[in-house]
Amino acid sequence: MAKMQLLNSSKPISNFKIRGQVLLFLLPAFTAIIFVMAYPMIKGLDISFTNRLLTYDKYSYIGFQNFLAMFSDNFFWYSLVNSIKLTFWAAAGTLLLGFALAVLLNHQFVFRDFFRGALFIPWVMPSMVTALMFRWLYNDFYGYFNYMLTKYHLIAQPVNLLADPRLAWAGVLLPIIWCNYPFVMLVFLAALQSIDKSLYEAAHIDGANRLQAFWFVTLPGLIPAFVIVIILEIIWTFASFDLVFLLTRGGPADSTLTLSLYIYKQAFEAKLLGYASALGAALFLILFFVTMMYFSFVRRTGFYEK
């Protein structure tokens, strides 16, 4: 805030002129975002008040009926719980893996650049390739995982993770984590490098061992990174669609049916465009409130001054 006042006091510019400049600077970004987001959102909201079917042209406005129907729709609640579970485990797994790799990579050694580059690969993989590769690895008749596990007698019978309603979750989680960890790893790597080295020296002088230094210097230094990565992972996983869709389409027996998938199925398989739009609005609201609560929690704890 201080720098603004300084600038303005040293170079008084009329309010009008600033406003014009601000507009000029922000306009390109806003145009792009509004172009792609705002119109579809408004259109979606409009459709959510109708009983529109996908391939039928006639429809009428039915008020809040779609939204009321949601409350008695078991599948909505079921898929919502699934989404929350998936998001939680995916975010936890991604964070843990990304964090561990960042800590391991945060030291000077010979092949550091190689490892960094190699571990970055999954981020570039198109989701279709990821899904198909994992489906192949999991396969119980010709996949690598089962072949090796049975060959070394680690399991007696081949198991296809994706085909068992109780295990399909794990099968979906692994590729999601696999795709997402590189981004988290890079952010943590950056955060680790931003920690002031003199703090470690000070800790060393105070007689702290490695673990204590890690606990009292490294972790606090990483809090801003955690704050932002957690919320990005939550938002991205909760609203994500393509990996689960390509891997299981929500099956078997709806065991991996997430809210985004349920929305897709309602819109494009059951053709209930109106109802699906209402579900979409619900998803948006849920994420909106989660994010608000998250940031107010973060602000109250005072970890992250913003």
């Binding site: 008749f141 099956g251 078997p252």
Partner: peptide, 9 residues
């Protein structure tokens, strides 16, 4: 095969 519930592609 029990895994036929997941057959695709």
């Amino acid at each position: 095969p029990p895994s036929a519930v997941d057959w695709k592609y």
